[in-house]
Design a protein around this nucleic acid. Structure first.
Lengths: 142, 142
DNA sequence: TTATATAAAGACGTTTTTGTCTTTTAATAA
DNA sequence: TTATTAAAAGACAAAAACGTCTTTATATAA
């Protein structure tokens, strides 16, 4: 479904949302250890999320990654679009150029409504909302 | 959504369903040209589908790929399981080991019902049913 | 039987994804 | 100012996905 990049990224953002009370900062290493994901790889993902304005960072001593109010107000779908690409929810399931409701591919009406349903949910839910009421263990691997 | 392997494979199977009236046989080259997909790559996919019992083949002169009655009666999901792997509709969206309704990951209730919905549809539709009433141009790339 | 057509098998190469490591830049504390 | 801490940048490498080509096995037609 989602790439590893995207799965690690979503979990890292939620880690920051859940643990970042009081302007705390977290290094990639800290997050990677908690989530049990490759640390250097996660560092790159965090960098990409930072460039996309989905997480904030501070360099130097006492620095690290965190979520600003702006970050928390972003819709969840933006994490996915940043890490999977803007086309992730677009295009034909079978990869056909001119597939549409008017000229549907064989799987169009089975798959597209479901994809659009997920897209709608993720567009209308902020990172803050997704993290609300979440138990920290829900992003851990065991 | 689906890998190229899977997308090419689904289209190739439907090509055979739509064009195979009267026990006709088709070479990978013929199918690849019609679908505008890489021919050697498609040949491998057809081989894999053949091993999985989703398409039939005959060697030698006059041979080629085709769908038997048994092939046509297979559920559509089997194409996907063969080409994407048996785990494709299983497991956590975020890749967590112990994610379930009882211990859900943050996206569980958003994504799993949709995935299960698609799975159910594909389990309960045969290749013949999917190809019924389909216009041959619906699997072409333009 | 021989030539031909075709799937099957397998070697090889490219691109993308995933993962690791080192060096550089910048901020803070002492 | 200097040492330390941490993100940023970028080189490198392994694995998987994608794609190409050649050789071999096999069935059919002539």
């Amino acid at each position: 479904m989602f790439s590893k990049t995207c799965r690690y990224g979503i979990r890292a953002v939620l880690f920051l949302a859940l643990n970042g009370k009081g302007a705390k900062r977290f290094s990639p290493d800290t997050i990677a250890e908690a989530l049990e994901v490759p640390r250097y790889f996660l560092a790159k993902i965090l960098l990409q999320l930072s460039r996309g304005g989905l997480v904030s960072s501070a360099k130097g001593r006492g620095g690290g990654f965190y979520l600003s109010e702006e970050n928390l107000a972003r819709p969840v779908i933006d994490i996915i679009l940043e890490l999977e690409g803007k086309e992730f929810f677009k295009g034909c399931v079978l990869g056909l150029k001119r597939c549409s409701s008017a000229k549907p591919c064989p799987m169009h009406f089975q798959a597209i409504p479901l994809r659009d349903g997920l897209k709608f949910q993720l567009e209308n839910q902020t990172i803050r909302e997704l993290s609300n009421g979440l138990n920290p263990i829900q992003i851990l691997n065991d």
